[in-house]
Simulated assay, not measured.
Amino acid sequence: MSDWEKASTARVLPPARPRKLAKVPFVELADGRLQGVVSSGSDIGRVYVSSVEVGGYAFACSTNNNRPCGGARGSFCNHILAMVGEAVLQYGPERVARYLRVEAEPTGHAIAAEMMRTGPAQAGTNAAATVFSQFLRHLAYLELAPTTVPLPEMQWFPPTRAVL
């Protein structure tokens, strides 16, 4: 068994390009959505939780207090556009386009433009509570000291070898 298999952490793919975490500290492709947390440009204590659903591109954007975003009325707001751009930096344009099922040139601007052109007329399911709690859980991991001791919450992974 290799050293990484004994560790309490999993291998992480490096980002496609380095990105700054101040504007979009959390972005992920999960649960059939591109979802993330975007900092407010006007209030340091406020963040927006944004998401775009795979395929139909239904979207949602609200504050961490579940107040709707004023800019997300029938079209993507600046928070969603920033999240798409950061997802392209994190995962690469091809992977983001493939995940969202967007037929467009593999650039952040083209992906967002094609999604707006083909579909986000309706609001999506607001998954703000789920996305925000995942963001907070990720923040908690940053406070842990590096270790090879197993973490109890990571023990759901199946064993790597058969027990006879």
Rank of each mutant, 00 (worst) to 15 (best):
A22S: 15
A22Y: 13
A30L: 10
A30Y: 07
S39V: 06
L21G: 10
L21N: 10
S39G: 10
E28P: 13
E28I: 07
D43N: 15
V38L: 12
V24D: 08
I44V: 13
G36Y: 00
G32I: 09
A16P: 09
R17K: 14
A16L: 15
V37F: 00
Y48L: 07
V27L: 09
D43M: 06
L21K: 13
G32S: 12
G36A: 12
L29Q: 00
V24C: 15
P25V: 01
Y48V: 02
S42W: 11
A30R: 04
G41H: 11
Q35W: 04
D31W: 09
R17F: 10
D31P: 07
G41F: 08
R17S: 15
S42T: 15
E28Y: 02
S42R: 09
A16K: 11
E28W: 09
V49P: 07
R17C: 12
G45E: 12
Q35F: 02
G32T: 06
S40A: 04
R46D: 03
Y48Q: 05
S39Q: 14
A16R: 13
S40M: 04
Q35K: 12
R46H: 02
L21S: 05
V38C: 07
R46G: 00
D43F: 10
R46N: 08
E28S: 06
F26K: 03
K20Y: 01
R33G: 01
K23V: 03
S39I: 01
V49C: 06
F26T: 01
G36L: 11
A16I: 09
K23Q: 14
R33Y: 08
D31F: 05
R17M: 14
R17T: 12
S40C: 12
A16D: 11
L29A: 02
V47I: 05
A30G: 05
V27S: 04
P25Q: 01
V49G: 07
R46C: 14
S40I: 02
K23E: 10
L21M: 09
S40T: 03
P25Y: 00
V27R: 05
R19K: 15
R17G: 02
D43W: 07
V38M: 05
R17N: 11
A30Q: 09
V49D: 00
S39T: 13
A22M: 08
F26N: 09
V38E: 12
R33N: 07
V38I: 10
G36K: 06
V47A: 03
A22C: 04
